[in-house]
């Protein structure tokens, strides 16, 4: 009996690690968390497994390699890449200006950067579609230049870029704030050009955060739906994104096909999520969670 008591004490010690469990509420808080995570996040995944396991391998492959679906992967991938690269540049510019300079309107810009997260995607969608339509405020000017945005893949890029702008700004901003000025000032005082100091001194400590922001923006763009469907025109083989393909299959009551495509999308997003988390814990340890 004392042996079993000892092992249980030992196992508690082992589980609690170095800090002994002094604080109350471990069972309650972990219980609520595990119950919630299982019920809300993990249980729904079983539905997808059951649905896809009802298909034969050939059916599965046939569904996910349907030419129209393949086109949607391609469109989604390149538009998401273009949007997140645009946000890499725009986001870095915004973060730089917000951290380095004082100017009238700065607080307004800082607040408005988060608008895409606060504004419902459907509202963003109809607004961008209206702005970029041929008779819209932006569309009529772009039309004169011969550029069509609404109802083309470029419209998808615009919608994706809009909905994911805050990611880059909010990951780069804290790193820029904490950058120590010493090296930079030394380099500048020794007469190095701004461009050179930026490349040699600032960028090396900045790029892990920039990569994280761009990757988050890319992940979000891959899954974006609400903002895109209004501006994309949704032409098969041209401007259909993959989340729309899933939606279309659902409306055809083809749950199996929807699940097969969704499982591919889910797989890619989970891989990206774990990769980003791993990357962050390696390079951005101090900024975890910001």
């Amino acid at each position: 009996m004392s042996a079993s008591a000892q092992t249980s004490v030992a196992s508690v010690r082992r589980f609690s690690g170095r800090s002994k469990r002094v604080l109350p509420g471990f069972g309650l808080s972990l219980g609520i968390s595990l119950f919630f995570v299982s019920l809300v996040l993990l249980l729904p995944l079983t539905g997808l497994v059951v649905e896809t396991s009802g298909m034969t391998w050939d059916q599965f492959v046939f569904t996910i390699t349907d030419p129209r679906v393949i086109e949607s992967y391609k469109v989604t991938a390149w538009t998401a890449l273009a949007a997140s690269l645009f946000n890499g540049v725009f986001g870095l510019l915004l973060a730089w200006v917000l951290v380095r300079y004082e100017f009238p309107g700065k607080r307004l810009i800082d607040a408005v950067v988060d608008l895409p997260f606060a504004l419902p995607t459907a509202v963003a969608g109809i607004t961008l579609a209206t702005l970029f339509a041929q008779n819209g405020w932006y569309g009529q000017w772009l039309d004169k230049l011969g550029i069509e945005v609404a109802f083309t893949p470029i419209g998808i890029v615009v919608a994706m870029a809009f909905t994911s702008i805050p990611f880059v700004v909010r990951t780069v901003q804290p790193v820029l704030e904490e950058l120590s000025p010493a090296d930079e000032e030394a380099a500048v005082s020794m007469g190095a050009s701004d461009g050179r100091v930026f490349r040699k001194v600032i960028f090396p400590s900045l790029w892990p955060a920039l990569v994280t922001g761009v990757a988050l923006s890319f992940t979000r763009s891959l899954g974006e739906f609400g903002a895109i469907i209004f501006i994309a025109g949704n032409t098969p083989y041209v401007s259909e994104v993959t989340s729309l393909m899933i939606f279309i299959r659902l409306q055809e009551y083809d749950y199996a096909a929807a699940s097969a495509i969704a499982s591919m999308v889910l797989l890619v997003s989970l891989i990206l999520l774990f990769a980003i988390n791993l990357w962050q814990s390696r390079y951005l340890r101090r900024l975890e969670g910001r």
């Binding site: 968390s33 729904p44 997808l48 992940t219």
Partner: peptide, 23 residues
């Protein structure tokens, strides 16, 4: 556990809806 709670941020909303519909 900390990584798991980020799943909804990574998953497309359409896929999220589908998961619930299937179950």
């Amino acid at each position: 556990l900390i990584t798991l709670i980020d799943i909804p941020f990574a998953v497309s909303p359409v896929v999220a809806g589908l998961l619930y519909l299937l179950l």
